[in-house]
């Protein structure tokens, strides 16, 4: 009879994870910044801001599975139906590259993703920076105004569908089934803002219909909340709510319009981030 071994320890292969999440390192420096894109696009959103970091910091860029140049075949609806799945991508990368003391910078939904990761493995993170974050996009009266009614968000799902109809593989996942080879279902992965319809739908659901307000009080890391003055996805009351409920957080409101202020106003945003990092 054979004795049972302990198979609980998972060893992640660095090359495999690097390839799966399209991990790239740029810049030089002692400290490491991990930049996490939000819903909709990929790591290229950071290209306007990275020049401000690369002379003094080592910068890690990656794409969540399903976005950008990640490995589409690693996507599973189960894993990525909630934000914990995306946080696992972050942790997998930290583990594969044996990272500690990471300054995590997340745009939009990646703020909460970063918090989830930091709660799971606190020792890997030094601090968190959240750009235009929101723990919940739904209006939940009377106490909370995420900015959107359930109906608004259901219309968003429809609108996304309409925008994906023009894509060659809109019907492909059904017609070909889930055994279809990567090269057929995956041809659209790789373009900046367009992902596979199933991936986008799953990510949108995980982002916009979730409520992570309850985890905010558990924060233990120094956290910068950067809030745009006028941002439909994260209105000022959301930033204020997070600040009130997150121990160790500070809130800075920028005079910017729109949700992509890291692309529209890279200098303003990087100045605030750099000031926080070297505080």
């Amino acid at each position: 009879m054979t004795a049972c071994r302990d198979y609980g320890v998972r060893v992640l292969d660095q090359k495999d994870i690097a390839d799966r999440n399209n991990v790239r390192f740029i810049g030089k420096g002692e400290r490491l910044l991990m930049l996490a894109h939000g819903f909709g696009c990929d790591q290229n959103v950071w290209r306007f801001m990275t020049p401000a970091f690369t002379s003094t910091y080592r910068v890690l860029l990656f794409d969540y599975v399903g976005s950008g140049h990640s490995r589409l075949s690693a996507f599973s609806v189960d894993r990525y139906s909630c934000l914990e799945g995306y946080a696992q991508d972050v942790l997998d990368i930290c583990e594969a590259f044996d990272l500690q003391d990471v300054s995590f910078i997340g745009h939009s939904v990646s703020g909460v993703v970063g918090l989830l990761a930091a709660l799971e493995q606190p020792y890997r993170f030094r601090e968190l920076v959240m750009l235009g974050p929101s723990p919940c996009y739904l209006n939940l009266p009377p106490d909370y105004q995420g900015g959107f009614s359930r109906e608004d968000l259901e219309q968003l799902m429809d609108l996304m569908d309409k925008n994906y109809i023009g894509w060659a593989n809109y019907l492909a996942p059904i017609v070909m089934g889930d055994d279809a080879p990567d090269e057929l279902t995956g041809e659209l992965s790789g373009s900046f803002c367009s992902t596979d319809p199933l991936v986008a739908r799953t990510f949108a659901n995980a982002t916009f219909f979730s409520d992570y307000r309850h985890i905010l009080p558990r924060n233990r890391h120094p956290t910068l909340l950067l809030q745009g003055r006028s941002d439909a996805l994260a209105n000022p009351s959301v930033g204020e709510y997070m600040y009130q409920n997150m121990p160790g957080s500070q809130l800075v409101t920028l005079d910017t319009e729109g949700h992509c202020f890291h692309m529209s106003y890279p200098n303003k945003v990087s100045a605030e981030v750099l000031a926080f990092l070297s505080r």
Binding site: G40, F148, D152, L159, N163, F208
Partner: peptide
């Protein structure tokens, strides 16, 4: 509101 999200993301 839905189009605003599409616009921004």
């Amino acid at each position: 509101p839905a189009s605003n999200i599409m616009f921004d993301t």
